[in-house]
Simulated scan of single mutants.
Amino acid sequence: MTCPICQRASTSEYRPFCSKRCADVDLAKWMTGSYAIPSQDPDDADAVIEAMEDALQQQDKPH
């Protein structure tokens, strides 16, 4: 199996990656949204914005 980041042979310790560095590169791509699937549907964006606004409003309410 090859590392999906650099194409070197993967190691059992970091499988499917070859090193901690490549595992961290992959994690950073997930965290920044680089792996997001683009949508052509504008309704998707509106739904996400509404959900985020609702979540923020819930955080502001006292318990």
Results as ranks from 00 to 15, higher is better:
17 F>V: 00
12 S>Y: 07
15 R>Y: 11
47 A>N: 08
13 E>Y: 04
46 D>F: 13
15 R>C: 11
36 A>F: 12
62 P>A: 06
37 I>C: 12
43 D>F: 14
41 D>G: 11
11 T>W: 04
3 C>W: 02
6 C>Q: 03
57 Q>T: 15
51 A>Q: 02
44 D>P: 00
4 P>S: 02
22 C>I: 05
29 K>E: 06
20 K>C: 05
45 A>P: 09
26 D>C: 03
50 E>S: 14
47 A>C: 05
13 E>Q: 14
9 A>S: 14
42 P>H: 04
40 Q>Y: 13
38 P>T: 02
55 A>V: 06
31 M>V: 12
40 Q>N: 13
29 K>T: 00
14 Y>Q: 09
11 T>Y: 07
21 R>I: 06
3 C>A: 05
40 Q>V: 07
35 Y>V: 03
60 D>F: 10
21 R>N: 09
35 Y>H: 09
7 Q>P: 10
6 C>Y: 00
38 P>I: 02
62 P>D: 04
60 D>A: 13
23 A>L: 02
15 R>D: 09
48 V>P: 06
46 D>M: 14
16 P>M: 01
34 S>T: 02
6 C>V: 01
45 A>C: 05
28 A>R: 14
30 W>K: 01
50 E>T: 04
1 M>I: 09
26 D>K: 01
13 E>F: 05
25 V>F: 01
17 F>R: 02
60 D>W: 09
27 L>W: 11
51 A>N: 04
27 L>R: 15
54 D>V: 15
37 I>E: 15
20 K>R: 13
41 D>Q: 07
55 A>N: 04
37 I>T: 15
35 Y>I: 09
36 A>Y: 05
57 Q>A: 10
19 S>Y: 03
19 S>Q: 04
36 A>Q: 09
61 K>L: 13
63 H>M: 10
55 A>W: 09
9 A>K: 13
4 P>A: 04
61 K>S: 07
22 C>M: 11
1 M>W: 12
45 A>R: 13
7 Q>H: 09
49 I>M: 11
4 P>D: 03
20 K>L: 11
16 P>H: 02
59 Q>P: 04
19 S>E: 02
49 I>R: 13
33 G>P: 02
36 A>L: 01
24 D>N: 11
50 E>N: 14
3 C>S: 03
33 G>S: 07
8 R>D: 06
47 A>W: 03
48 V>G: 03
33 G>D: 01
8 R>A: 11
32 T>P: 02
22 C>S: 13
22 C>H: 06
23 A>P: 00
43 D>I: 11
35 Y>W: 11
35 Y>Q: 12
32 T>S: 15
54 D>M: 15
46 D>H: 14
62 P>L: 11
52 M>L: 15
35 Y>G: 06
18 C>W: 08
39 S>L: 00
61 K>I: 08
15 R>M: 12
13 E>S: 08
19 S>G: 01
60 D>Q: 08
49 I>F: 11
19 S>C: 01
13 E>M: 09
26 D>W: 09
39 S>M: 02
30 W>D: 00
2 T>N: 14
